[in-house]
Design a protein around this nucleic acid. Sequence first.
RNA 1: GCGGGGGUAGCCCAGCCCGGUCAAAGGCGUAGGAUUUAGGCUCCUAUCACUUAGGUGUUCGUGGGUUCAAAUCCCACCUCCCGCACCA
Length: 961
Amino acid sequence: MTINWSDIEHKWRTKWENSSLHNTNVDPDKPKFFLTVAYPYPNSPQHIGHGRTYTLTDVYARYKRMLGFNVLFPMAFHYTGTPILAMTKRLAENDPELLSAFQDVYNIPMSVIKQLDEPKKIAQYFHDEIKQGMIEMGYSIDWRREFTTIDTQYSKFIEWQFKKLNSGGFITRGSHPVGWCPKDGNPVGQHDTLGDIEPDIGEYTIIKFAFDDAKLVAATLRPETIFGVTNIWINPDIEYVKISLNNEKWIVSSDSMFKFEHLIEENSSTEAISGNSLIGKWTENPFTHMKIQLLPATFVNSKNGTGLVMSVPSHAPYDYQAIVDFTRDHSLLSKYPDIDTTNLAPIDVIKTPRYDNTPAKQIVSDLSIKNQDDSKLVDATKELYTLEFNSGKMIDIAGDYANLSVKQAKEKVKIDLIQLGIASKLYEIMNSPVICRCGTECIIKMFENQWFIDYGKPDWKEKAHSSINDMSLVPSEITVEFHNTVDWLHEKACARNSGLGTKLPWDSDWIIESLSDSVIYMAYYTLSRLIKEHTLDSSNLSEEFFDYILLGLGSSELVSANTNISKNIIDDLRTEFLYFYPLDSRHSGRDLVPNHLTFFIFNHSAIFPKNHWPQQIVVNGSVLMDGKKMSKSFGNIIPLRQAVKTYGADPIRLGIMSAAELLQDADFSLELVKSFTERLNKMHNLIHEIKSASDYDVTQAHSIEKWLLSRLQRSIQITTDSMNKLRVRESLHNIIYLLDIDLQWYNRRTTLSTEDQNSFLKYFFETRIKLLAPFAPHFCEETWETLGHEGSITLEDWPIPDTNLIDENSELSEDLIKNTVEDINNILKVTKIQTQRICIYIPANWKWNIFLHALKQEQLLLKDLIESSLNNPDYSEFKKHIPKFCQVLFKELSTMDSSSKSRILSIGKLNETQILEDLKSFYKTQNNIQVDLYSEDDSKIYDPRNRSIYSRPMRPAIFLE
RNA sequence: GCGGGGGUAGCCCAGCCCGGUCAAAGGCGUAGGAUUUAGGCUCCUAUCACUUAGGUGUUCGUGGGUUCAAAUCCCACCUCCCGCACCA
């Protein structure tokens, strides 16, 4: 008989639903446990990978319920954001890639796709799809509290959040360079570009060198080297322009002019200048006032920076090489007779441990660079830049900046130059061209007056650190990542101008960005049920309303008077919030550690009092599919609902949970799922065989039953310990595999009648099924019912190990038997003989005495052991065997761990003859082999090969024939 | 560059914090056997090498070190993966 998964899943889903089993209300008599998992963004159906975090959370919820907690596990949907918008657009354009994903991977019929013509419809479609999947997976969610982040009431809640942040001084405003698609009019991130290339925004300092009525504008990444400028490089073959901006005239290459477009004064004329005409002219270093000349160089690229380069030959390999090239090129020298080459000696500015002086010269010679067009110059530049950036120090020539590290000097010089009006910043895409998905080349745009949440505030960081220190992080290894994230987080743009979401309450041009409107929503779960049931209108959900309910400010009377919401409802909302908050456990994948989870910590610490800060965060790794990352392009995505349909929810749950320990990436495999299916089937069939057996009285247990009961208690203990640490793999390991191995051994050893066995097994499985219930809820409900129970197993108590049932003696005895069997197998394997008779020799008493004596010694010395044994008159007749025996014993004891030692000591001498007596029937029934037991000092011993002298306590000697 | 995580027998995955029970759990796969009309399921046995007596040898990315003892502690190196934002 095999399990019909869809039948039992449907049956139990319906029962749970009808009995509102997972709906959780305030119950002052019961301790609550409130846990949430990052809500899904509905732009695709869930796949197996998504299932991991949700399943883990559900397993935990079910476990906590069995421990007696009033568990609240809610769910909502995150509609906020831009990807759905982009998706709508691509769908409208019949984007073939997206259409194929929808049809072939997600299996959405064309007729349905046609209807998905606006963002909300797409979100709603996947919302339903995902929700259905969660139900089918058996997640024990209180669906009454479900909401979406574009519900008007939720928006009021987010408005409240931002008012709190703003009044608390956590919001700032500023300008920020972003990668920008001029066609879409949107910032672009990695996910918006062809080939998923992140625009690498570099910051140039542009330095203005006076030149007649205008400024020659050179862009540099190394403003600190301004002390070493010897000349300016101009490419004679390119065109430059003079443009008017900021009340100045700038000279830049015409190819770079567009970068200043937004600064150029309207209607101003531009004057073209050939590069060649500039060569040989003079200007001066605006900072040091040294007179310098404009020289020709071919390496200058009209598109990089401004098409002008300030030359620092000591520290820039290109500059050094270009000067070498120029001064040895006689035709050039004669072409520009005005150029004074005596003025071009490199000027050192920075020293490093590796180079004494003019490092550019040395590195050029080390790499055997031939001329300024040599491609090795790129590496040379990078190497020297990195070296000086990390270990360089400014030397005396740098005046006030002398002795500063290059890192410090770079910032300081830059700021000072800008302050003096000599320089300004220019942002540029360093890895250009970066192409937007729409096909347009991206540029840099200053995003003006952007709103930020200022995660850089030192006192806020401190609060976040302390919140982390006060909460439990599971697994604890992840703690350092949180602290690091808190440290390097800074202003985070919190609003954008497109996408679904809530408008910024004080500036309706902006929509609150999706990572910022999802940081305290756990609190909203405690309200959403009542808000929906009483159909509270969003217009009444004022700041005052949330102030009272979430912070206890004001009074319910006043709020009621001002909002038209009855006082009772307001009181209920406050009660509900106070009952469930703080959040006891937050779950998500580890990819959210550097963003969402840390924002979540920050925002709670900003808005809520300390007693409402989160209590625990649980982080899990991702899911690989047969060793590979799951992705559409690999075609290895398995939609969750389809998997449930094919394999059943419980086998999938077990497969995901057992594949890896919490933080590791889990390698999901369908083979594993299939093997779980078989194991559950086996268990199911067995339970049907034993279901009507009579009750078992554990106090009557003896022999191998006692052993299995003892093992079961240990298993409960280990499983409980690992569940508390959410080491679910270990838990399942115990429940499924290790208990199975014990059960198999039990089956070989038991001598009970089938009837008695069945009642014993019934007891065993009732406990085992409870342990399994959080993982495989449908299966366990079904088998629990089969075993004659009426209530849901969800409401059963989690098993507690019964120390009275732990029996060290039977465990040690069973170890003796197993070891002896193993030894016999070993001998059989090596000798390859077909044995008819097994002779087992139990060690003599004196051996046990020495053994126990040796175990008691804290510091065991072989010499002492031998001597004291030899001197003991009781052993005088065995003298000749003592040294050899002690030697072997000593070796054995020196590698035995202390817990085994004390275990044996606590039990004392085993009656090995009686224990091993069982082997007679064991071998008789299995292979029809005769087993004879002898004590070593038995006078009638049969020992043709004289093996009995090798016997040791816990290790009888063996002879086969 | 900054931050984090890995490298264990054919594969997956524990063990490492807290050294000894570690030739290293468990699963998957494979082979042989039992059961079966057959297949599947199930059960038993084996699965680093050598070995006709329960043994020995060499293994936990590489190389050193500490220790009576190292997969585990320390140092160096090689190598793979992930994150670095205005995007969920």
